[in-house]
């Protein structure tokens, strides 16, 4: 396994994957962060950031995960590299190294987003108290949903042998996530790739007449997170089988 990881590191040389992951997480979270102009906005700063970030993740991350997954399988796609590789190393070690590398990139994205949570309040003077368990919950949920997307799209990359399809699917999922984010909650549950919004444990209420936005903290939806984990495991199995089925 160590040799497989080393091989992946060599393949990733000069690709700056981790930097790319960090920048994606950082820019997404920064764009979601509210720069308050009035006192009431400072008083709900972290709640607003939670809602905005979960929505931004639902939009950006399907495509981001498609990009990371297809990029990880890029070298094998070019010139039918799989055939050569499988004569030199086991498919299990190749898949294991890819999966681990993908998950590390995912962790970097989550950490970058968590860092923005800590920084935004200080930079823009949020007066709301920061609830660390909520930040950790959001990071955990982002990690699980991203892992689900990553494995499903990795499976697609391997099966299709082209990078256009996973990226097109990632793009379509991003667009559908916007669609489902504003749908009734039951409908949202049918689209696992957009679970970021229902998992955020924070609901926004906007009164059109008074134009007042209020945020309601909810209990952590552990059942939904469990469903996301199951989907992630399913994605993992699909990706593993896809690599196994590559014939020499």
């Amino acid at each position: 396994m160590r040799a497989a990881m080393l091989a992946e590191r060599i393949k990733a040389a000069r690709r700056h994957d981790l930097l790319l992951a960090a920048l994606t997480g950082l820019l997404t979270a920064l764009c979601a962060a509210v720069r308050p102009e009035e006192d009431w906005q400072r008083a709900v700063g972290y709640s607003a950031l939670t809602v905005n970030l979960s929505l931004m993740n639902a939009v950006v991350m399907p495509l981001a995960m498609a990009a990371l997954a297809s990029r990880l399988w890029d070298m094998e796609t070019r010139g039918s590299g799989c055939r050569l590789l499988f004569t030199l190393q086991s498919w299990e070690s190749l898949f294991g190294a890819k999966a681990l590398r993908g998950l590390v990139q995912n962790v970097v994205i989550c950490l970058a987003e968590g860092a923005v949570f800590l920084l935004a309040g200080r930079m823009w003077g949020y007066t709301q108290a920061l609830e660390i368990p909520r930040v950790l919950w959001l990071m955990l949920c982002t990690f699980v949903v991203n892992a689900m997307r990553f494995f499903a799209l990795l499976a697609l990359s391997v099966r299709s042998g082209t990078q256009v399809l996973p990226l097109a699917v990632g793009l379509a999922c991003s667009l559908l996530s916007v669609f489902t984010a504003f749908m009734p909650e039951r409908l949202t549950l049918l689209t696992p790739w957009a679970y970021d919004v229902p998992l955020s444990a924070m609901r926004m209420h906007y009164d059109r007449e008074t134009r007042i936005t209020a945020y309601e903290p909810l209990a952590f939806p552990a059942g939904l997170l469990a469903a996301a984990v199951v989907c992630g495991v399913l994605g993992y199995v699909l990706a593993r089988r896809a690599v196994r089925d590559q014939e020499v």
Partner: peptide, 10 residues
């Protein structure tokens, strides 16, 4: 292939 597409989204 993927990175320019991701840059476009960001």
């Amino acid at each position: 292939f993927a990175v320019p597409v991701l840059i476009a989204l960001v």
